[in-house]
Simulated assay, not measured.
Amino acid sequence: MARRPLGRLEAEVLAVVAAADSFISTVDLWERMDGAPTRSTVNTILNRLLDKGMLQRIRVGRQYEYRLAVDEADVVAGRMHEHLRLASDQQYVLSRFVETLSGEQARMLRVVLDDLPSAGGGRS
């Protein structure tokens, strides 16, 4: 069964969990989120991500703590690919994206592109 694309809040929760050094409590996660979503909204998102197999959960005392169960790079790359797939002019979207990169990000992209196999490799 194919996964539905992640919503904005799901992506934000994943980013906060990924940035944590280890398991993170619901309260700590909620405090690190932008836009002040309600705690019940955060709990709903956490449960959705658990159901999708993207998070692991442990019980610590009377609360749960979470960590990623998937590779963050795969999740983010998948979202980028999904957005690009929906564009009517992918080349234009890519050029606009590249124009917004910082100097360091552009350097990192050049390194990645230089390391690709000459057959146009990379995963699709």
Rank of each mutant, 00 (worst) to 15 (best):
Y92N: 06
T26N: 02
H81W: 11
Q91D: 12
D115W: 05
I24G: 02
G53W: 00
L55Y: 08
Y64D: 15
R107D: 09
M80F: 12
Q105D: 12
M80E: 06
R107T: 12
I45F: 03
Q63D: 12
D89I: 03
D115Q: 12
T44F: 12
D51L: 10
Q63W: 00
S25G: 15
S40N: 12
R67T: 08
Y92K: 08
Y64T: 00
D89Y: 00
L86Y: 00
S25T: 13
L94N: 04
V60N: 09
G35E: 13
V75Q: 04
S40C: 09
Q91E: 14
L50H: 03
M80C: 14
R62F: 00
L50W: 02
E99R: 00
N47H: 09
L84T: 03
E72F: 06
Y64W: 08
E65H: 09
G61V: 03
S22R: 12
F23N: 08
L116P: 02
H83V: 07
E104F: 03
T41A: 15
R110F: 08
M80L: 15
L101N: 07
M80S: 10
L68D: 10
V98A: 07
P117C: 11
L109E: 01
T26F: 00
N47F: 07
A106N: 09
M80V: 15
A119S: 12
E104D: 11
D51G: 08
L55W: 02
R67W: 01
V75D: 06
L101S: 09
L84H: 03
T38G: 14
D71Y: 00
R85K: 08
G61K: 01
T100Q: 11
A119F: 04
M108C: 07
Y92D: 13
Y92M: 08
R57K: 11
D114I: 11
Y92Q: 11
R62V: 01
T100L: 09
V60I: 08
R96N: 05
R85D: 15
V42L: 08
R59W: 03
H81G: 12
R85E: 15
S88F: 07
R57A: 15
R39W: 01
E65L: 07
R79Y: 02
P117Q: 07
Q90M: 09
V93F: 01
A73R: 13
N43T: 04
Y92C: 06
M108L: 13
G78Y: 06
I45R: 10
Q90S: 05
D34G: 05
R107V: 12
L29S: 05
L116F: 04
Q105T: 05
S25L: 10
D28Y: 00
L49M: 06
Y92A: 11
E82H: 03
M108A: 14
V76T: 07
Q90C: 10
V60Y: 05
G78M: 13
N47P: 02
I58F: 03
Q63M: 09
T38S: 15
R39C: 06
V76E: 03
G61W: 07
T26D: 11
E72P: 04
A87M: 12
A87P: 04
